[in-house]
Design a protein around this nucleic acid. Structure first.
Length: 207
DNA sequence: AATCGTTCCAACCGCCGGAGC
DNA sequence: AGCTCCGGCGGTTGGAACGAT
């Protein structure tokens, strides 16, 4: 997928040589400071391109190849719950990237789940209507820990639990980023009860 | 073997929120 | 308050690979 370059920066497919340079740079300096990476690595690429290449392809432990049945099941269930929050879904699939999940959904599951090509009476009826609130924080705020407890306390004092109810002392990821509301509590509970993994374990995502 | 249509997926793009000034 | 920079996200693109005819 070779494309032209703008302002002298290379675009398109990465070469093996570029991969080696990027990998060694990240191994030496660590992840982050992506604006410095092109210079450090001696790459004629923009910071975004470097970051994407690392996260989607070069990062260790990335799982490649066909999605297993349990992974597909997880994607379907989590998509039902989260919508197109690919990074969150990928966070529950070890070794899979958000790009992988998104691509898999778009090529394999979207038509399936939206019932395209099926008779009306065979279209899925059990999709939970989820309101995904945007925008959402992507970094953890400094005063997060107290905020999370406050939110939890507030929610527990209300009569109607919401999807983003959060137990205290859970990970910032779920506290800060899990901004969803389902139509009803029942829909939310149905969603979790249908999952094939221990729903409680989702709170233990490493930060 | 050649052509055409479809699928796959790596990479780009535009946008957003947070942080710092 | 407003601006800029940065990291990060989801949507989209388009070339490669594959299958059907």
């Amino acid at each position: 997928m070779q494309k032209g370059s703008s302002f002298g920066l290379r675009k398109g497919s990465w070469t093996e040589e570029e991969d080696v340079l990027l990998r060694s740079s990240v191994q030496r300096y660590g992840e982050g400071e992506w604006h410095r990476v092109p210079q450090r690595a001696g790459l004629n690429r923009c910071r975004k391109s470097c970051r994407l290449r690392w996260l989607n392809y070069l990062k260790p432990n990335i799982k490649r190849g066909k999605f297993q049945d349990d992974e597909v099941d997880m994607i379907i269930k989590l998509h039902k719950l989260l919508g197109n929050r690919w990074s969150l879904i990928a966070g529950r699939l070890p070794g899979r990237t958000a790009n992988d999940v998104k691509n898999y959904w778009n090529t394999h599951l979207r038509k399936l789940m939206t019932g395209q090509g099926k008779p009306e009476n065979e279209k899925p009826q059990d999709l939970v209507k989820v309101e995904v609130i945007r925008p959402r924080p992507r970094t953890i705020s400094k005063n997060f820990s107290s905020l999370g407890v406050e939110v939890y306390r507030e929610l527990n004092e209300s009569r109607e639990p919401r999807v983003h109810d959060v137990p205290p002392n859970r990970s910032p990821w779920i506290d800060d980023d899990f901004e969803l509301r389902s139509e009803t509590t029942e829909a939310w509970l149905d969603c979790w009860s249908g999952l094939s993994f221990d729903a409680e374990s989702i709170w233990d995502r490493p930060v």
